[in-house]
C-alpha cells in the first residue's frame, strides 16, 4: 500500500464538528459529505484539496462525537490517508471501519509542513518527505486493524462472518 500526494496541515484537537458540522449530517452519502469537509474549521476549506492529497493533523485528531460521517467526509473530499500525532479513539475505529488509513507519527509530525510532497510506503513503515528530503517512520498499525482495512472494512468482515 503506497500513497503519494501533497499535504494539508490542520491543528491539535480538531473535533468532529470541525470536520463535518452537525447541520450537514442529514445525508449518509460520502461524496455529498466530502463537499463540506472541514466546513466547521473554515468556510470553503475543501476547495484546496486535489484527490490523493494527504491530511496532516496534530494531537487527538477526531475528538468529539461518534459520527462516522467524519471519516466519510475526509474520504469524500479525496484524502485516502491521514497522518497525525495521535487520534481520538472512536474516530480511530471508525476510520479503519470505513477504509480510511490513519498513521500515528507522535512528535515526528512536526517534520511535515503544509504543502510538502510525501510518498508513503505502509508496508515498509516509511514516509519520504520529497520536499525536505527527510525520511520519517511511524508507529506500526495493529495487525488486527490492518487486516480489517485490507479485507475491505468492517462491513465485508461481518458479511463473511454472517455467510459462514
Amino acid at each position: 500500500m503506497t500513497f503519494k500526494g501533497k499535504t494539508h496541515v490542520v491543528g491539535d484537537h480538531i473535533d468532529t464538528d470541525a470536520i463535518i458540522p452537525a447541520r450537514f449530517l442529514v445525508t449518509a452519502d460520502t461524496a455529498e459529505l466530502g463537499k463540506n469537509c472541514f466546513e466547521g474549521l473554515e468556510e470553503g476549506w475543501v476547495k484546496r484539496v486535489t484527490p490523493g492529497d494527504i491530511l496532516v493533523a496534530g494531537e487527538n485528531f477526531g475528538c468529539g462525537s461518534s459520527r462516522e460521517h467524519a471519516p466519510l467526509a475526509i474520504i469524500g473530499a479525496g484524502m485516502p490517508v491521514v497522518l497525525a500525532k495521535s487520534y481520538a479513539r472512536i474516530f480511530y475505529r471508525n476510520a479503519f471501519n470505513m477504509g480510511l488509513l490513519l498513521l500515528e507519527l507522535g512528535d515526528d509530525i512536526a517534520r511535515i509542513k503544509d504543502g510538502d510532497e510525501l510518498e508513503i510506503d505502509v508496508a515498509a513503515g516509511k514516509i519520504a518527505n520529497l520536499t525536505s528530503g527527510e525520511t520519517i517512520g511511524f508507529n506500526p498499525v495493529p495487525k488486527f486493524m490492518m487486516d480489517m482495512l485490507s479485507g475491505g472494512g468492517l462491513v465485508e468482515y461481518v458479511k463473511r462472518k454472517v455467510e459462514q
Binding site: E68, P71, I90, R93, N94, N97, M98, V158
Partner: peptide, 9 residues
C-alpha cells in the same frame, strides 16, 4: 460510543 458501522456489527 462507537461509530455506526461498529454498532451495525
Amino acid at each position: 460510543g462507537l461509530g455506526s458501522t461498529d454498532v451495525a456489527a
